[in-house]
Design a protein around this nucleic acid. Structure first.
Length: 951
RNA sequence: GCCCUGGUGGUGGAAUUGGUAGACACGCAGGACUUAAAAUCCUGUUCGCCGCAACGCGAGUGCGGGUUCAAUUCCCGCCUGGGGCACCA
């Protein structure tokens, strides 16, 4: 009987489906465990081998926990709204709902192939009305809430209104406009529109104006991704910044809580750092500088408005040699003087054509003097005001003070424009590069001279506050999250506009269904496609739709209670399942999805809808599977002539992508190549041994055609994608699952390489042969296991359990291999050993495990024990328990090194004392030889590890 | 420009992070079985040197320093692959 994986896998997949083996109940006496994958966007390209890496890891962990006696929630669904489906609709006229459904079906087939343990009854699709009804509902919660800063939590906006009626906004600083102040009677005197405009400045979901990438030629707004070098990626049309009405989420109010929450969850250090950097909390000060402009060469005119800069280093105020304001800064127009005006305008025009990204990455220093000067409030020094693209309008006040001796970028700026540099840190500054130290004693700093910079910060802050020209200020890099898109394929906002007032739809009218449209093209004036629908516009409904991250911000909750029509998720149910215990996905969502879903969770918590405020207890990042592309090299002068890679230095060639599937290692399958594309059918190939072959020749004359290789993103256009289906067909799901894990640590990025998959497949066949012999048939028996066999088993139990628990799936696979190798050597086919092994293997290779388990259990004895009709599945077996007594050793082969070099091994009892060990070791002949009679300086003995003799 | 990650045999990786570098697997070489192939099994496989061999010696975890009895692991300085950026005053 041989290992017929195709029949076995098909049989058990059907059986598990029929028996509802993966159905999960919300009620159980077992402890709960929630394992979640980042749900995929169902793209038209289908799954490639990179996708399942995380899915397999989570499936292994979920099945492992199930065997360990947990009630495990392990769902899957689709993040089904998104731009690609809309793009596809524009190009092909196919409704996004239709193409999305097709893609989902395709994904599902691929997923089913691999044998995941998802409870498909809980599937969610964010684009289904039954789902987005609740996305809209949560949006209304956000819309109807504000952030109470003193209580540090979200509260109902109705509450805020009653506060305003009693005391105005005296104790409720306005997050949208900190200068806004009114008392109770003023509030009551406002018109309804005025009141609503004010409330908008408080709401957690609010409407405002913001800049977007606008492409006039395409008549649409573009994502940053779609803009390359100031033009649209598609078509290369110019893109400009345009202000549009936008919805936002007031995530900035939650900055501190998002920061604090990181301490309560297990994210990787890198991930925590990324989120921390994104939030970007900094402590500094805002300082007002008076401005003067020369009216004539002799006369300086003061300006009414000051230049306010934000700095984290007020202690360096005497080192300020110039100011830089962002090119968008509103002051520029007022302060730039006649002589400089033209240059300033020219510079601003140049900057406008550039993206923020380009501006930041630019190595070349650019800038323009405005002609105006700021006055240092402490010593009256005139400081030139420049504009430069490296200062961004969106951060701080959009203006900085340049301290060249302490900041590298300022230093380069000063050097480039030959601005004299004031040294305030003495020998800490070497004149060549800036030194951002806080340890220097200040010099050239008036009343701060001799004070350590670190201490000077508070002194300057106090002085500025006394003078009324500065205040301490905490700043965040993070900005409020833009929450609207001028697109079709997303959730409609449940908002009507009446006389400029946003009115939420009553909950009873949810879901507000996404209407059918004739065309998916954008609406007029940068509005979304919904603006093209007369009925929609007539109802005065919002024409924007929600962004992709809306639906994914709360999907983990819907899985818990997916069919509930009364509420997004029953509170009792969310109390039971609680946080996601293990969340697996890629780092690409480090700051987007992961931050937004944390925000939504906190708001839902504040409003009392759920009982926890961090969605994910533990996050595991899977590495990216890269593609390993192959290239053939073609003569530049002759498109029908290809040169083997080892010879290209002698020719002028161009690399061309070739399908990795027709290259074995680096050797091209020439016959397959000629068939691959018709244009290659008759080409000439110069082989590695300098033999030239033409289309008619099949004899390779002992040569090979060698390709070159490069690691790139996995993508269809690079012909380096591998479809998991092909591998599953060839080797089976169990082999595929184990091979993906065997590839390396799950969190490490690596290029895909199929060539080792045979080894894993051989392992499963070898395991099979412990159970069955081709001639003798059944091998397993009920003989008593020997100590040695039990030692092999229990070592394996310890290793697999430990490795699985710490997500080291690659080493677990190798532990299985070692175990099966050992058992084969021992010719052990005893049930006592094989049964626990089979159970342990279940998370990794469920199909073969179930098959073998059933063979083992297919005896009258077990049938009797089970009773009539008793279901039997390895999925619910109990995990073998490790027993120390089988693996304890009494002695160890100690490596002995002399002066750090290992010279020999000696076997010493583990319970030997240090003195005994020293005596034994030093009397050893070989060790004596190496000591060469020299005195022993030091004898180091690390129990259970090694011995080192220093002479 | 800034941030985060990696760099170990021919290849993927192991060494649970100071304590025997190269587990496990691929590939390769040789052999057994076979008419042959597939499958399977056995042996060898970091590099260099000496040698018939056992053994032995030396080098070795990107490069150069350092700390230590002991460094893939810790520190300093470089080189380099990959990923991300709204980067921060």
């Amino acid at each position: 009987m041989e290992y017929n994986f195709r029949a076995i896998e098909k049989k058990w997949q059907e059986q598990w489906k029929a028996s509802g083996a993966y159905k999960v109940s919300n009620e159980s006496s077992k402890p709960k465990f929630y394992v979640l994958d980042m749900f995929p966007y169902p793209s038209g390209k289908g799954l490639h081998v990179g996708h399942p890496l995380g899915f397999i890891a989570s499936d292994i962990y979920a099945r492992f926990k199930r065997l360990k006696g947990y009630n495990v929630l392990h769902p899957m669904g689709y993040d089904a709204f998104g731009l690609p489906a809309e793009q596809y609709a524009i190009e092909h006229g196919i409704h996004p709902a239709v193409s999305t459904a097709q893609n989902i079906q395709n994904f599902r087939e691929q997923l089913d192939n691999i044998g995941f343990s998802y409870d498909w009854d809980r599937e969610v699709r964010t684009s289904e009305p039954g789902y987005y009804k609740w996305t809209q509902w949560i949006f209304l919660q956000l819309f109807n809430s504000y952030y109470d800063r003193s209580a540090q939590k979200a509260k109902s906006i109705a509450l805020l209104v009653s506060v305003f009626e009693q005391e105005g906004n005296l104790n409720q600083e306005c997050p949208g406009d900190s200068s806004l102040q009114f008392n109770a009677s003023e509030w009551k005197a406002f018109t309804q529109k005025e009141q609503q405009d004010i409330l908008m400045l408080y709401r957690l979901a609010f409407c405002g104006y913001g800049e977007v990438n606008w492409c006039e030629a395409l008549g649409t707004v573009l994502a940053n991704d779609e803009v390359v070098n100031g033009v649209s990626e598609r078509g290369g049309h110019p893109v400009v910044k345009k202000k549009l009405r936008q919805w936002y989420l007031r995530i900035t109010e939650y900055a501190d809580r998002l920061l604090d929450g990181l301490k309560t969850i297990e994210f990787s250090e890198a991930m925590t750092e990324m989120q921390t950097n994104w939030i970007g909390k900094s402590y500094g000060a805002e300082i007002d500088f008076a401005i003067v402009s020369p009216q004539s060469s002799a006369q300086l005119t003061p300006h009414a408005a000051p230049l306010t800069v934000y700095t984290t280093r007020p202690d360096t105020i005497f080192g300020v040699d110039f100011m830089v304001v962002a090119p968008e800064h509103e002051l520029i127009e007022k302060i730039s003087t006649g002589e400089q005006k033209a240059a300033v305008e020219e510079y601003i025009t140049y900057v406008k054509s550039r993206s923020d990204r380009e501006r930041q990455a630019e190595k070349k220093i650019s800038g323009c003097f405005t002609g105006a000067y700021a006055i240092n409030p402490f010593n009256g020094k005139q400081i030139p005001i420049w504009i430069s693209e490296y200062v961004l309008a969106g951060y701080g006040t959009g203006a900085i003070m340049g301290v060249p001796c302490g900041d590298e970028r300022d230093h380069k700026f000063a050097q480039h424009f030959k601005i004299p540099i004031t040294n305030i840190i003495g020998e800490y500054y070497n004149g060549v590069e800036a030194n951002p130290t806080k340890d220097a004693k200040l010099e050239n700093s008036d009343f701060l001279n001799g004070i350590v910079m670190r201490d000077a910060i508070a002194i300057v802050n106090n002085r500025l506050e006394e003078m009324g020209i500065g205040k301490k200020k905490v700043n965040y890099k993070m900005r409020d999250a833009a929450f609207s898109r001028q697109r079709y394929w997303g959730e409609p906002f449940p908002i009507q506009w009446k006389s400029g007032i946003a009115i939420p739809l009553p909950e009873t009218e949810l879901p507000l269904l996404l209407p059918e449209v004739d065309s998916y093209s954008p609406g007029p004036e940068g509005e979304g496609p919904l603006a093209n629908i007369p009925e929609w516009v007539a109802r005065e409904l919002e024409t924007n739709t929600m962004p992709g991250y809306a639906g994914s911000s709360w999907y983990f909750l819907r899985y818990m209670d997916p069919h509930n029509n009364e509420t997004f998720c029953d509170r009792k149910v969310s109390d039971y399942w609680n946080q996601v215990d293990l969340y697996i996905g890629g780092t690409e969502h480090a700051v987007g999805h992961l931050l937004y879903s944390r925000l939504w969770t906190k708001v839902l918590f504040d409003l009392g809808h759920i009982g926890f405020q961090e969605p994910y207890k533990k996050l595991l990042n899977q590495g990216m599977i890269q593609g390993s592309s192959r290239f053939v090299h073609r003569l530049k002068t002759d498109p029908d002539f290809f040169v083997s890679h080892n010879l290209i230095s002698e020719y002028d060639t161009l690399p061309i992508h070739v399908d990795v599937n027709i290259v074995d290692g680096l050797e091209l399958d020439i016959a397959a190549f000629r068939i691959w594309k018709p244009e290659f059918a008759n080409v000439k190939l110069l082989l590695d041994n300098n033999q030239l072959i033409t289309s008619s020749e099949t004899d390779l004359k002992g040569g090979r055609f060698i390709c070159s290789a490069e690691v790139e993103k996995m993508s269809k256009s690079k012909f380096n994608t591998i479809n998991p289906n092909d591998l599953v067909n060839k080797f089976g799901a169990d082999t595929f699952r184990m091979y993906e894990m065997f590839l390396g640590p799950v969190d490490q990025s690596k290029p895909w390489d199929t060539k080792g998959i045979e080894g894993v497949h051989r392992f499963l066949k070898k395991l099979w042969r412990l159970f069955f012999d081709e001639i003798k048939g059944k091998l397993w028996n009920d003989e008593k296991a020997t100590d040695e066999e039990l030692k092999v088993l229990h070592r394996t139990i310890r290793k697999i359990e430990d490795d699985t628990e710490r997500y080291s799936f690659n080493t677990a696979v190798s532990a299985f291999m070692i175990c099966v190798n050992d058992l084969s050597d021992l010719k052990c086919s005893k049930r006592e050993i094989l049964e626990p092994l089979t159970i342990m293997l279940t998370p990794y290779a469920p199909h073969i495990a179930e098959e073998l388990y059933h063979h083992l259990k297919n005896t009258p004895l077990f049938a009797q024990q089970r009773g009539a009709g008793g279901e039997l599945s390895v999925l619910d077996a109990s995990y073998p328990i490790f027993q120390e007594k089988y693996v304890t050793e009494s002695s160890k082969e100690y490596p002995v090194s002399i002066n750090g070099k290992v010279r020999t091994n000696i076997n010493i009892a583990l319970d030997a004392t240090a003195e005994q060990v020293e005596t034994i070791a030093l009397s050893n002949e070989l060790i004596q030889k190496w000591i060469e009679g020299k005195p022993v300086k030091k004898f180091i003995f690390v129990k259970g590890k090694m011995i080192n003799v220093v002479v």
